[in-house]
Design a protein around this nucleic acid. Structure first.
Lengths: 185, 185
DNA sequence: TCACTTCTTGAACAGCACTCAAGAAACCTA
DNA sequence: TAGGTTTCTTGAGTGCTGTTCAAGAAGTGA
């Protein structure tokens, strides 16, 4: 199977570059990681990277897809836990990537491809949060606004470092306030 | 007064460069605005900018201080309005700067000077929000977590464009949920 | 007039993402 | 097995970036 062999090699090499890029993006940041350094760590020249990826943003998107797929697979195993536990899990899980959250926002305003990825990501995240809120008994009319608030709080906790106790306090208060019925307006 | 004359000129020139930089940073974004373009629009060479500002991040901080001072002066005139109105005002007021919010987060992770500015800004913003929450009757124990949530929602609304109706819905729901007492836990 | 500080500049530097054209290697067909 | 084709890799280069250096112009005080 010669044709398959080729494709297999291609996938392996691509994956190898991807793994290096992911590590450097997370450890050192997107802007601080040059294509040259990625190439160096992967044992190739920069041009080789450009054979497998259109540009640096394309490489970023591939890394994001990798990370997202991994996180979703893990999330599937804890869907029965209460809402606040799941939110806290998401924050802990994504915290290592806090630099990439800013990067995505920054690049989305410049690169149409990253913008598209960002839009798709939020649609996915919103639907997950909306489902969770519904299950927690939130009023249907409030779901969209609540979802936005949930998303913003998670992003905020990711982009501004808080210690574990503060994170939990913020999330517990949020879930408590959002999923209980007030007495006075 | 020869010495004063000199200093006056210096301030004027600095202010001139600052105004140009502010416009370009807001309109085109920080990353997309090169020092060369700023110099061009200000009618000087790049080196002249480096006489008045240490580096590009220093220029960014000066712009941020300008914008913050202006916003605070305006905020002082509406402190008697209800909390949700004030939050909405803040979001509308800062919305033109939404690109700069990301920029500050990105640069804060690279430039110690921007990091310091960012920290100071959040201390100021947190104290303003905490005061507002106290006046709205929030429980004292919940104030820190509530403040964080308020900050995150404002930042979220700034960095992800929502239309006016959605912004209002999010803020109204947030204020309503945060400032009323729940019946069931 | 002369020294001194303040300001401005032309010319360069290293680093960046990215491209081009040529060559090496693997592959398929005859 | 030979030759043509596709897939991959590379050295060398381009134009842009923020930033620096050394030299010169201009304004100031004696």
């Amino acid at each position: 199977m010669p044709r398959n062999r080729r494709l297999q090699d291609r996938e392996e090499k691509r994956e190898e570059i991807l793994a290096v890029a992911q590590r450097l993006f997370i450890d050192d940041g997107y802007e601080s990681t040059s294509m040259g350094r990625i190439a160096e760590h992967a044992g190739v020249t920069v041009n080789t990277i450009y054979w497998y990826f259109r540009d640096k943003d394309d490489l970023l998107i591939a890394v994001l897809d990798r990370l997202l797929a991994e996180a979703l697979a893990q999330y599937a195993t804890i869907t029965d836990r209460p809402l606040n536990e799941r939110l806290l899990w998401a924050v802990d899980r994504l915290e290592r990537l806090h630099g990439l959250v800013n990067t995505v926002h920054t690049r989305a305003s410049v690169s149409p491809a990253v913008h598209t990825w960002h839009t798709g990501f939020h649609e996915l995240a919103d639907s997950l949060i909306a489902d969770a809120l519904r299950n927690a008994g939130a009023a249907e009319a409030d779901i969209p606004a609540m979802t936005a608030i949930g998303t913003f709080v998670i992003e905020g906790l990711l982009t501004h470092r808080y210690d574990d106790a503060d994170k939990r306090a913020v999330i517990d208060l949020l879930v408590h306030k959002l999923t209980t019925v007030p007495t006075q307006a």
